[in-house]
Amino acid sequence: MDLTPEPNKDDEAVGDLSFDPKGMLDAEDGALLTRLAHVVEEIDPVPSDLVERSLFAITLAGLEADLMEAVYLDAPLAGVRGAAAAARADDTAPAEAKTITFTHDSLTVMISLSPAAGGKVRIDGWAAPAAGLDVELHRPGVDVVTTASDEDGRFSFDSVERGRASLVVRRTDGGGGAVSTPVIEL
């Protein structure tokens, strides 16, 4: 391992991007780092559709809705998205209902996803504190679908195509501003 300072041959090319030239790599170091990158990718792969969901989330950013946070509890509820193991189980057992909770300040929205006819998904939602809400379902390349909650904060979408989606929730009385869920995979 060669730790002696060497002139940084990249200095000219990268200008102020250069750094302390100590710790130059030898060939074995370089190969080790390349292999490590491969191992990092293999052991903890980036979720396959994270890029697509991020891209859709960016297009929704213009809605000026505050992003809600998904709550991940290692709860004993079947099918909670929280545990990675449960997420994997969901892949192999899509018939299982799945519950996700989102929060923003004082508002909590819980949705339950269950199978509907034709391979579609039914979404049942509850918002707390209970209030009249307009709930918009946003999906890539599809018109926005809007539903209104009842006075207890319950709402549903009966039959939704699987795929990426985000819910945007506004109070019917216009108070409090809009909030949106992260883009999830139905």
Partner: peptide, 19 residues
Amino acid sequence: VEHDAADDVVQSTWVALVR
């Protein structure tokens, strides 16, 4: 960060960038 939470953190980082 746990797997699903990391997923949301990455998404919200991109949203924060455009905002």
